[in-house]
């Protein structure tokens, strides 16, 4: 058996599967975006640009903008809280650290929908959180905590914060903490040392955390569907609505293509920065 032949035989199963069930479907979606729908919800013959003209209707820029700012804000909040957590975890003893990590990951292992449901029942008009806020005088009894953008933001942060903590911790673990002492000796304040020494030190983790939070949030569908309302829909909701309610597959495909383009930007950015980093470390060694 030649080496080339051996390589192909062990590469082919996974590659074939992924080409067939990942690459082809993705191309199919891009293609269907240029088709018409038939009356009974199927896909028409011939090519058209009508679907795209329909997508650029007045209500969509709002939905795209909302998707972007909700994803951006979720990522920022997750990073803001995860950085101190990763700092603290990295300075713990090895055993305490493992237990703390397990404690952080554990809720992530419970079913995602169940966690969203837990928030739904907390924020519900009869829920405890709502009742507590009313009792404290922070919310009026008629106030609706559910079905708005803030509920969506809250649950998005809740769901994705472990995804931000893990890569940041992985970076912080490798950080040389004596650098902080050095900065302090040279006269930097606590906060100054943290911001200008620790944060640049974990920049690789920050990029990873950004990608693993921002991208899935862009495509989120279940969370805005359950705790959000008509005024807090994201692109994902519009895609699902076109598939399950309006039965307009070309329209859904056009929206999915749009979402894919939005997702591609941060991916290309992270590949670019990683390659540049690799090149600069390569030069050093």
């Amino acid at each position: 058996m030649s080496r080339k032949w051996r390589e192909w035989t062990i590469t082919l199963p996974s590659m074939g599967w992924l080409v067939f069930f990942f690459v082809i479907p993705t191309l199919l979606v891009c293609g269907i975006a240029f088709k018409n729908r038939t009356i009974n919800g199927g896909i028409g013959e011939g090519w058209t640009l009508d679907t795209w003209l329909n997508v650029i209707q007045p209500s969509y820029p709002l939905v795209v903008w909302r998707t972007l700012w909700l994803s951006g804000l979720t990522t920022l909040i997750c990073l803001f809280f995860s950085i101190p957590v990763s700092y603290w975890l990295a300075r713990l003893s090895k055993e305490a650290r493992n237990w703390m990590l397990l404690l952080i990951i554990l809720p992530f292992w419970t079913n995602f929908l169940i966690r969203v449901f837990a928030w739904w029942s907390l924020l519900h008009s009869q829920g405890w959180l709502k009742q507590a806020l009313v009792w404290l005088g922070l919310a009026s009894p008629e106030a609706q905590l559910l079905y708005n953008e803030w509920a969506v933001l809250l649950v998005l942060v809740y769901t994705y914060i472990p995804f931000a903590i893990l890569p940041l911790f992985a970076s912080a673990e490798k950080f040389d903490f004596s650098l902080l002492d050095a900065a302090r000796d040279l006269g930097a304040g606590k906060l100054r040392a943290f911001v200008s020494v620790f944060i640049p030190g974990i920049s690789q983790g920050m990029i990873t955390a950004f990608v693993v939070v921002f991208i899935p949030v862009l495509g989120s569908y279940a969370i805005p569907d359950i705790v959000g309302g008509p005024t807090s829909e994201m692109i994902g909701n519009k895609i699902a609505q076109n598939v399950f309610v309006d039965r307009n597959l070309p329209h859904a495909s056009a929206l999915a293509t749009l979402l894919a383009l939005v997702v591609l930007l941060p991916v290309l950015y992270s590949i670019f920065t990683q390659r540049r980093q690799k090149r600069s470390t390569g030069r050093r060694s």
């Binding site: 899935p216 495509g219 994902g236 598939v243």
Partner: peptide, 10 residues
């Protein structure tokens, strides 16, 4: 890295 909904719809 692809969001679930894109994989689902494709």
């Amino acid at each position: 890295v692809v969001p679930d909904i894109l994989m689902g719809i494709s």
